[in-house]
């Protein structure tokens, strides 16, 4: 199975919506790859520069209600084509969370206190996710470990490589 983890892109704000992740004007693209340069183009977050901050990252860490708004799966694909495989947040909007797992990617919820610790690790943080054990190891200037639970069905989707593969076998 796919490995989950990588260097962390911290987006320290709640309610980041899918219009910010990928503006609607790019929804006219008919391939996922074409979305790649436009990631987080309209994100309202002081000091953030997508051109500088996204490259080389594998994990996004954010706050509450991540991915709210439009149902566009383009918001998941634009992460995928930028090699981001996991988003960790306090909570997710339902459709975004489902889209992540449907694509075989990980949307992990952690309590606010754990996120505070994660945001406070300092330096360049790298994360390794052990899906089977439900553990996250994070290493920046300091190290920390977190446990998480994934809805059992979502875990099955991720392990199957997504909803289409799962559904085609079963229904």
């Amino acid at each position: 199975m796919k490995e989950f983890g990588g260097k962390v892109l911290f987006l320290d704000r709640s309610d980041i919506n899918t219009d910010e992740i990928i503006p609607a004007k790019y929804l006219t693209e008919n391939t996922k790859m074409a979305l790649q340069p436009f990631i987080l183009e309209d994100l309202k977050l002081g000091g953030f520069d997508p051109a500088r901050d996204v490259a080389g990252k594998g994990v996004v860490v954010s706050r509450a209600n991540f991915g709210c708004g439009s149902s566009r799966e383009h918001a998941v694909w634009v992460f995928e084509v930028n090699e981001i495989n996991t988003v960790i947040a306090e909570s997710f909007a339902r459709i975004f969370r489902q889209n992540m797992h449907n694509c075989g990617m990980l949307a992990i919820e952690l309590p606010a206190a754990d996120l505070d610790r994660l945001f406070g690790l300092g330096g360049e943080v790298e994360i390794a996710v052990d899906l089977a054990a439900g553990r996250i190891k994070a290493k920046g200037e300091r190290e920390a470990e977190f446990s998480f639970t994934l809805n059992e069905f979502d875990r099955q989707l991720v392990e199957a490589g997504g909803w289409l593969a799962y559904a085609d076998k079963k229904y």
Partner: peptide
């Protein structure tokens, strides 16, 4: 529907939900 405002149709006493493209794809197929 692959559109978040699908919840509109709940006005008729239906369960109507917006979904992403993969859910839509499986809906179309299965």
């Amino acid at each position: 529907m692959g559109d978040s405002h699908t919840c509109t149709h709940g006005a008729f006493g239906a369960f109507a939900a917006g979904v992403g493209t993969t859910d839509l794809e499986v809906g179309i197929l299965k």
